[in-house]
Design a protein around this nucleic acid. Structure first.
Lengths: 339, 339
DNA sequence: TTGAAAGCGCTAACAC
DNA sequence: GTGTTAGCGCTTTCAA
């Protein structure tokens, strides 16, 4: 349709009656070019509003100044904030960010990765789906070794760099907090997935109970799909136990808000009868009643960190690093039993 | 750094002992190629795992299969959901989406647009910043006529296609609802910007009052910066008026939640003493107490629609269209005064 | 029905 | 200090 005709090196060369190569060299400050020539080239470039054609450049280098991001769902404060951190950091190095959404589907994730390679992005940052068990689509191939850094969710093997939150420590701290509030019958509400993130948190929960000589009861470890209805149902089952839990630790915001609804529906008081705390980055946790205690990820920082690591790989570093970002615990009304 | 060596037409041609041109033609189903040749080419391509190099293609066409999106801030359910809609629609046409964030800064927006052009995206979808008054950075130039479609926020002139919510109608409906609940002293809480979106909503509010023979009182039109502290302060000023408003219409979620806090803090009952409704896409509006009545944008639909329009421009259509997407009113506890 | 060759914009190896 | 040339992968005349 369009004749987007930007000025090219050729145009400048023609106008100045010199060779394209000279213009190219002058523009990138090659020392073998005389100052006189460089000056007129610079000026002409300025006048003609020259800007280098990335695409031509990329055809040679085989890489666009783009970094790809694959997230399981974008419509989430957590991921949009990770994305924001990545974008911020990438911009510093002159890279733009292109994001794709796997919608928690393994197939889509594979397709996304294929598309990233086709686009010749310089590198990829990915948060894998819940169902991803096979990670070969991220592995370098004979024809393509796009570097990949994982963020938030990582594969079990340590073949790639990753930036993750400290789930063990966070869950340990949250559980210890509940214990300090006098709770002893502490339940945990998990999502149904195989992510390391989940096992880590469960691990922290169990450790904290051990550390305080509290028995771990299997019936207090509940599972729900990540949707409100299921979270409510699972919580109701917990509340119906002969020995009702006096506290619940929810592993994400959907579960947290669902648990809150279920407890209220049961006519129980939060936190007096059932205390509540959960992993969540939802700012409205402090607007509900009671205000909800949460453990927040430093999502933006996670994005920035992942991007910096990716940059190091793009620039040739082969060393894989695993960076753990601390969480932030925000104690609010839902888990405060004493003053 | 890397030697990402994908199979090229040249490789296929070499392997088959035919010319590059023939391979190219066979692959794209050019009818002048014999079926026999086509078959062996197809098969070889399959075996060698050939995939076309977008970049080489783009060097000729001057365009990458990318559409750019510029949003004022990404860490927002609204914009990430618009983005999701765009991505979904773009994928259908084989385009990927690259997004940039202006952070509500005019300078950044200009820089973003420049970068989009440098990347040779096929088109741009933008939601302008609050401070953008000059829109020349979006206009086609002698050397570049990247098509631009606006979403959610648009420039005052009608030079570009745009997809916007029906602010007049939405505010009219919300105000009428408050009136139907018996409210007569209805205040409006606005953000401090020049966006058409704001004047539209104010317009709908005023119209609805007129239609019901209710006087518009200037002191009931309040302004606040878009942050919670300011929203609370502005609401407190409203509540301190000699004739206290009996209802408030807030123009976005920050203002809405701020107003809620201020009313509660003043010890007033929602909705009995002050009813509340506001524009918001925040799902937690139904988790606070009282549940908040909202007017929601169909953000995903807006993104999809904008993308479809952009596609039409990319494919050559010069006709600018302005599409208005209806909002969805969700009446909840905060504005329900009778059964 | 197929091949040869030019050209998109740029860089780098190799002259001079 | 500067020019010439080849080549990145692809499409598209022009010839045969």
């Amino acid at each position: 349709m369009t004749k987007n005709k930007h000025a090219s090196l050729k145009d400048i060369a023609a106008k100045l009656g010199i060779s394209i190569a000279t213009v190219s060299r002058a523009l990138k400050g090659n020392p073998s070019i005389s100052k006189a020539t460089r000056d007129i080239v610079m000026q002409a470039a300025e006048e003609m509003n020259y800007s280098k054609n990335f695409i031509a450049d990329s055809l040679r280098s085989g890489q666009l100044p783009l970094i790809g991001v694959i997230v399981p769902h974008a419509v989430t404060l957590f991921y949009s904030s990770v994305l924001d951190g990545i974008e911020h950091e990438a911009a510093k190095e002159g890279y733009a960010v292109i994001s794709m959404n796997s919608h928690e589907s393994y197939e889509e994730e594979c397709a996304n990765m294929t598309n990233m390679r086709k686009l010749h992005v310089a590198g990829v940052i990915a948060a894998v789906t819940q169902e991803t068990a096979d990670f070969r689509h991220f592995a370098p191939t004979a024809t393509d070794d796009t570097p990949v850094v994982f963020v938030a969710r990582e594969p079990p093997d340590n073949t790639h760099s990753a930036v993750v939150a400290d789930g063990v420590e966070a869950a340990h701290k949250a559980t210890t907090h509940l214990i300090s509030q006098g709770c002893r019958r502490i339940a945990i509400l998990c999502g149904p997935n195989r992510l390391k993130l989940v096992t880590d948190r469960k691990h922290g929960y169990i450790e904290a109970l051990h550390d305080n000589n509290i028995r771990v009861r299997p019936e207090y470890v509940a599972y729900a799909s990540i949707n409100t209805a299921d979270a409510i149902a699972a919580t109701e089952r917990l509340l119906a136990l002969p020995e009702r839990p006096d506290a619940i630790l929810a592993l994400n915001d959907t579960l947290l808000f669902g648990a809150m609804k279920a407890i209220k529906k049961a006519g129980l008081d939060i936190p007096r009868e059932v205390a509540l705390i959960g992993f969540s980055d939802v700012e409205y946790a402090e607007d509900v009643s009671p205000t909800l205690s949460t453990i927040e990820d430093q999502s933006r920082l996670m994005g920035e960190t992942a991007c910096r690591i990716l940059m190091s790989h793009i620039n040739g570093s082969a060393r894989t690093v695993r960076k753990i970002i601390p969480t932030i615990q925000k104690i609010r009304g839902s888990s405060l039993l004493k003053r």
